[in-house]
C-alpha cells in the first residue's frame, strides 16, 4: 500500500498517479490523505484520478502544522502499515516527511525525480551537488518515505467511473507548545514559469526595480514569461517568488531561456539547465553564465535589451 499526502491539490494528483505506478509494481493500492476539511468533492476528485481509498482526517487543527500533522500521519501508518509514503515536496511537505521518517526510524529521500522498484527495493533518483549529478539510492528500511516536487509526473486522466472508498477519521494528535500566530498571503503574480515556453530572466545586474520593465518588454514581444534569480525575489523582493528560478526556486525547461544580468552561479543553473536554447547577456566577459549558454552578448544590458527587443519585434512581424 502507498500512502499519499500533499498540501498542494495539483501536486496531489501527480503523486497519486505515481503511487499507482509504483503500487502496481508492488501489487498494492494507493491511499490518499486529506486533512481537516469537510469537502468530500476533493476526496471524489482524488478517486477519479486514481486513488483507491481516501482518508479524510480530522486533527482538530484548521491548518498545516508540521509537528501535529506528522503525528497524525504516524497514527494512520500504525493502522494501515503502508510500505511507501509519498509526500508533496512543498516546504510543508518536506518538513513533514523528514520529521515523520525520524519518528518511524526509517529512510527518507527529499525531492525525488524518479521512483521505481528494482530488485525488490524501492529505488529513488534525486539531483545532488547543485545539479551536477543524480544520486540513485535505495531503501533498506520500511516504510520508505519520499517527497516528490510538483510537475515531475503527470496526473492520470479523470475517470468518473472509478470507484474508491472514502473513510472519515478523527485522529487525536499530541499537541506541541509552538503555535501559528499569523498567516500572511504574499502577493503572487499568478506567473507559471514551469509551463512557460520562453523565459526572460533578470538578476542583480539591474540597478532598480523599475528597470525590470526592460525584461518584461522583451518577454512580451517573445510572448514569454519573466523570471529572475534568487536575490531579485528573496532579498530585493522586486518580483514575487513565483518568478524565482534555481535550486531553491522553480525548475524550468523552456524552449528559450534568456538570462540578463545574471552571473550564472551553479544554484541558478540548477533551475534552468534543461532549457533547449540558452542566451546570456552580461557585461562581464568572464561571467560564468556564458559557459552555460548557447549564445551570449557581452554588453551593458541597458544598451542591449532595448535594441534586442526592437530587433525581435522586427524579425517576428
Amino acid at each position: 500500500m502507498v500512502l499519499v499526502y500533499s498540501d498542494d491539490e495539483k501536486n496531489m494528483l501527480e503523486l497519486i498517479a505515481k503511487a499507482k505506478d509504483v503500487s502496481k509494481e508492488l501489487d498494492e493500492k494507493a491511499t490518499a490523505v486529506v486533512f481537516d476539511t469537510d469537502d468530500e468533492s476533493l476526496a471524489k476528485k482524488y478517486i477519479m484520478h486514481g486513488a483507491d481509498r481516501v482518508f479524510m482526517v480530522k486533527t482538530g487543527l484548521n491548518t498545516f502544522k508540521g509537528e501535529e500533522y506528522t503525528d497524525a500521519m504516524e497514527k494512520i501508518l500504525e493502522e494501515t502499515n503502508e510500505e511507501v509514503v509519498i509526500v508533496g515536496s512543498t516546504k510543508n511537505g518536506k518538513e513533514l516527511a523528514s520529521r515523520l521518517a525520524a519518528k518511524l526510524d526509517t529512510g527518507c529521500v527529499i525531492d525525488c525525480i524518479n521512483l521505481y522498484v528494482k530488485d525488490g527495493k524501492l529505488t529513488t533518483e534525486r539531483v545532488v551537488y547543485s545539479g551536477n549529478a543524480i544520486a540513485v539510492e535505495r531503501f533498506n528500511s520500511k516504510p520508505a518515505v519520499v517527497t516528490i516536487p510538483p510537475k515531475v509526473f503527470d496526473p492520470l486522466p479523470e475517470d468518473e467511473s472509478r470507484a474508491g472508498e472514502v473513510i472519515k477519521k478523527e485522529v487525536k494528535v499530541d499537541r506541541y507548545p509552538s503555535r501559528i500566530v499569523d498567516v500572511k498571503e504574499m502577493k503572487t503574480g499568478e506567473v507559471n514559469v514551469e509551463d512557460a515556453e520562453i523565459i526572460v530572466s533578470c538578476g542583480r545586474g539591474f540597478k532598480k526595480k523599475e528597470d525590470i520593465q526592460l525584461v518584461e518588454e522583451l518577454a512580451k514581444v517573445l510572448r514569454g514569461t519573466t523570471g529572475c534569480s534568487r536575490p531579485i525575489a528573496a532579498d530585493l523582493k522586486w518580483l514575487s517568488e513565483d518568478h524565482w528560478i534555481g535550486l531553491s526556486g522553480h525548475k524550468v525547461k523552456p524552449k528559450l531561456y534568456i538570462a540578463v544580468g545574471i552571473s550564472g552561479q551553479i544554484q541558478h543553473i540548477a533551475g534552468m539547465r534543461d532549457s533547449d536554447v540558452v542566451v546570456a547577456i552580461n557585461k562581464d566577459p568572464e561571467a560564468l553564465i556564458f559557459k552555460s549558454a548557447d549564445y551570449g552578448i557581452v554588453g551593458d544590458l541597458y544598451e542591449v535589451l532595448p535594441k534586442l527587443t526592437n530587433a525581435v519585434k522586427e524579425k517576428m512581424s
Partner: peptide, 23 residues
Amino acid sequence: KMETVEVKGVSMERKNIVYQDDV
C-alpha cells in the same frame, strides 16, 4: 537506512557562441 547505488553525471552541452563586438 539508505544505500547509494550510483552517482550519475548529468551533462550539459552548450554551443557557447559569444558576441563581443559591436552591440
